[in-house]
Computed example of a mutant assay.
Amino acid sequence: MFNLLSILEIFSPTESFALVACSLANLSFSACSLANLSFSACSLANLSFSACSLANLSFSACSLANLSFSACSLANLSFSACSLANLSFSACSLANLSFSACSLANLSFSACSLANLSFSACSLANLSFSACSLANLSFSACSLANLSFSACSLANLSFSACSLANLSFSACSLANLSFSACSLANLSFSACSLANLSFSACSLAILSFSACSLANLSFSACSLANLSFSACSLANLSFSACSLANLSFSACSLANLSFSACSLANLSFSACSLANLSFSAFSLANLSISAFSLAILSFSAFCLANLSNLSFSAFSLANLSFSA
């Protein structure tokens, strides 16, 4: 068995060194620099790092468990076919990390910065983020489940062919995120700001939004079902070739929304304001509207179905136009 501390005493941080089929356990590092090391088929367990710098490290077919990082910098690290479990990060900076075919479970991040990270064919489960900044992250063919975000900033993230389930966001800012061919289910947002998000060929189901602001979002060829909005502001949203079903809005403001070639069914609005909405080549069915204001709406090439199932109570209509 190798002693990593002895290795670092012998080799300079600028020299490359490879460890194969090694086990490192019950070690602590304080104010250390670890660089240019590669690990293959290794086991790392019960390690603690404080005020350390880790750079240009590569891990292949490794197991990392019960590791803690405090006030550390991690840069230019790569992980392939690795298992990472029970890791904690506090006041750390993580940059230029890549993960391929990895499993990440039971990880916690507090007051951390995560930038320029890429994930391919990975599984991420039971991760928590508090007061963190996440920027320029990409996810491809990944599964993300049971993740929680509190007081976090998420910007310039891309998701392709991913599954996102059981995620919660509280007091977070989400900006410039793109989703392509993704499935999003059982997500909750509270007191969040969502801006400049795009969704293409995605499925969104069982999502809840409370006291949130949603602006400049676009949806193309998407399915949205079982979504609820309470005390939210929705502005500058566009929907093209989408299906929207079983959506409820309470005490919300909806402005500058456009719908093209969409199907809308089983939607309910209570104490809402709807302004500057446009509908083109759409179908409406089973809508319930109570105590609302409608202003400056345009309808073109539409179909109203199940008129007996549309109900309107205590509302105001102004500046509506209908064509074909």
Rank of each mutant, 00 (worst) to 15 (best):
L254T: 06
F11V: 15
A141S: 15
A131F: 14
A161R: 13
L237F: 00
N256Y: 06
L237I: 01
A231P: 03
L187D: 10
S148G: 05
N196E: 00
F129M: 10
S150F: 11
F169K: 12
I206Y: 13
N246D: 14
L187C: 11
S40Q: 10
N186G: 05
A285V: 04
S140R: 15
S103I: 04
N309C: 05
C152H: 13
F129H: 10
S70R: 08
A125K: 07
A291R: 10
C212K: 05
N256E: 08
F292V: 13
S173Y: 02
L267G: 09
C112M: 09
L307S: 03
A225G: 09
S98Q: 09
C202S: 13
L320Q: 07
S173K: 07
S178F: 08
A195D: 08
F315L: 14
A181Y: 02
A175M: 06
S80T: 02
S193G: 06
F59C: 04
A55E: 14
A265L: 05
N286K: 15
S233M: 14
A61W: 02
F282M: 07
F149D: 09
L37H: 13
A185W: 02
C182P: 02
A65E: 11
S50C: 04
N196Q: 08
F89A: 05
S193P: 01
I206K: 14
N309L: 08
S43Q: 15
L19G: 01
L84E: 08
I206T: 11
F2N: 08
S273E: 01
S311D: 02
L194R: 02
N126F: 13
S16N: 04
F282G: 12
S33P: 06
A71N: 09
F49H: 03
C272N: 03
A35G: 14
L277H: 05
L304P: 00
A225E: 15
L117F: 06
F99N: 13
A141D: 13
S98H: 06
S50Q: 07
S288W: 01
S280Q: 02
C142E: 15
N266H: 01
V20M: 06
S53Y: 12
S173T: 09
L57I: 09
S6C: 04
N96Y: 13
S120L: 03
S253Q: 09
S280R: 05
L227C: 07
L277W: 00
L27F: 00
L124T: 15
S160R: 10
N309D: 08
L264H: 01
N3Y: 04
S108R: 12
L237Y: 01
